[in-house]
Design a binder for these strands. Sequence first.
DNA 1: TGCAAATAACGGACGGTCCGAATTCCCGAG
DNA 2: CTCGGGAATTCGGACCGTCCGTTATTTGCA
Lengths: 348, 348
Amino acid sequence: MPTPTLRTLAKELGLSRTTLSDALRGSPRVKAETVERVRAAAKAAGYERNPLTGAVMSQLRRSRGQQFRGVLAVLEIVGDSHTALAARYNDSLMAGISSRANDLGFKVERFVVGAQGLTLQRLDTILHTRGIQGLILLPAVGFPDLTELSWSRYTAVYADYFIDHPPLHCVCSDHYRSMIALLHELHARGYRRPGLIMEISLDERLQFRWEGAFLAQQKYLADITVVPALQLREITREAFQAWFRKYNPDVVLGHFPEAMDWMRACGAKLPKTHAFVCLNSLRTSGDCATLDFQTPLLGGRACELVIGQLLHNEFGVPSQPSLTTIPARLIEGPTLRAAKAGAAKAAR
Amino acid sequence: MPTPTLRTLAKELGLSRTTLSDALRGSPRVKAETVERVRAAAKAAGYERNPLTGAVMSQLRRSRGQQFRGVLAVLEIVGDSHTALAARYNDSLMAGISSRANDLGFKVERFVVGAQGLTLQRLDTILHTRGIQGLILLPAVGFPDLTELSWSRYTAVYADYFIDHPPLHCVCSDHYRSMIALLHELHARGYRRPGLIMEISLDERLQFRWEGAFLAQQKYLADITVVPALQLREITREAFQAWFRKYNPDVVLGHFPEAMDWMRACGAKLPKTHAFVCLNSLRTSGDCATLDFQTPLLGGRACELVIGQLLHNEFGVPSQPSLTTIPARLIEGPTLRAAKAGAAKAAR
DNA sequence: TGCAAATAACGGACGGTCCGAATTCCCGAG
DNA sequence: CTCGGGAATTCGGACCGTCCGTTATTTGCA
């Protein structure tokens, strides 16, 4: 007896091959009762669907044909505050998302949710009527709650460290590793007294990854003089200069470019006697060394994740959320000694 | 302009789709000159053939559908040492890999590389002749170098924190977040003097993520009494007991279950007066609270990554490697007070 | 020149998918 | 009871890249 195929099995059951295919794949287009009947018959006949063949066929069928295969929704959750920095960050993510989505044959639409935008109920119905199933959530201040969406219809990725309501896959920069790599690089360039300044609120939402990496690495790099991190609710000029004069770090890491002026006011020459590295390139204007979070890459990765799940027909909240990260890249600048020739090595 | 297909391209060239297909695959059925012409035209039109699609179609035609699966190679890189623990870890990863691969229509084959196994050159030819393109690398001791494989043919994922030769996507447990979540949970259960014991070599390959998270969290949890971490090349009974007596931590976190006996020898009652949490469930035998790395899930995620890239026809070393992580899960045990009713909350 | 053999290209069929069209079902209004 | 319209189901057509048998063209040689 030859191995059964979709078509032979369909003939036996008096259904079309399409219905069989959809039923075995669990498509909502087929009535639940029919799905049961088909699955039982398939099992009896010893028919097993080949998921690899299915995936390939799906790809094939999808990609040719039209220009676009679907639409992704990018959700921007706006609360009461809404800084210019966050806007730059989000725009930069969007650029990566749009570009990668376009490569993979998807279009992107942006929706604003929250205080000044749509309610979740309204969004739910809009997405439903438009048939949009893939969601990318831009970073939101605080800990957003999106449990009210009908998640069984969607597959989503959050572009920040974590989200608990509901727990979704996340894509974010790897702050821990970036800090480790940066300290290694500074060490290789001869710096021995690295100092960190940080507003607590900035590190808190990262679960203190900046400081955690800094503290751990201080202990294990050779010949390091330990400079305690300056962590405050708010970094002021006075607090900074007191700290700077007391510990005299040879390289300062922090978010605020103003610190360069404060250092110079204390008599520091950049990069001759001291160095400064800004921890977020979006805060600078090209006048200092800084870390580039490569947000377009992050956006691209988020796209790949969502689209991958769409292609596998996986919807709903994942059973175990995962976190995908990309390390930041060091951008050279006039506030940092160049790498010694030969010792030059890209940050890991 | 729609993406070209075999048929449209064939019409343009005035040839049949069969000839195109054969030519692109380099079949001897087609005249060499025609092959050249076809390949040039395909390149000009931006047509790229997908080898996985080809393989699936081929097997489909040849063997009447069923029983065809794609193949992934799992590489085990064995150096001189080879502990039982590593073997358990790898087997557990394998279980997750096999299961997820099977769901997605792939088979898995395991290859041993290194000192007691295949040379890289030999592996390269084996993979080539077998037509295997997807690779999953199991964790190796030290920092393995696999640059000698012909990477343009493969797409791969490394199941550990990082690999630099070459830089590949990685999948690994999220030690930093696991530690943060664990400390939060312990804090919620009333523990205020957490202590960490760690062999330096174990944390070093994690870039000190255990200790980094521990140090950072000690600073920012409320009402914590700081107990310095016991970090040694080797943890001995004497060193441990001296540390334990001096600082009297109310909960000890570490890799070695022997520590429980040492604590008891100092008069501690588990879980009445003190608690112990093992940081790696594979080291325990069910007699204490511990962290489960959920290795099968990690393996599954690695599969999804590799297969996703195969389906998208993406080979070679990625331009920017990413790291995908999953947090560990706390397993309750008789060495830890239960969560207070109401305050119970799954670890993030 | 005649004709078999070798060479080159073609057309049909295939399995599983997507998409739009067709059919059936349901339910309230007239 | 009939009709209309919209939702729920099912169906048919078109499609992908491959294999394999067939057709058309050229070559080899008596």
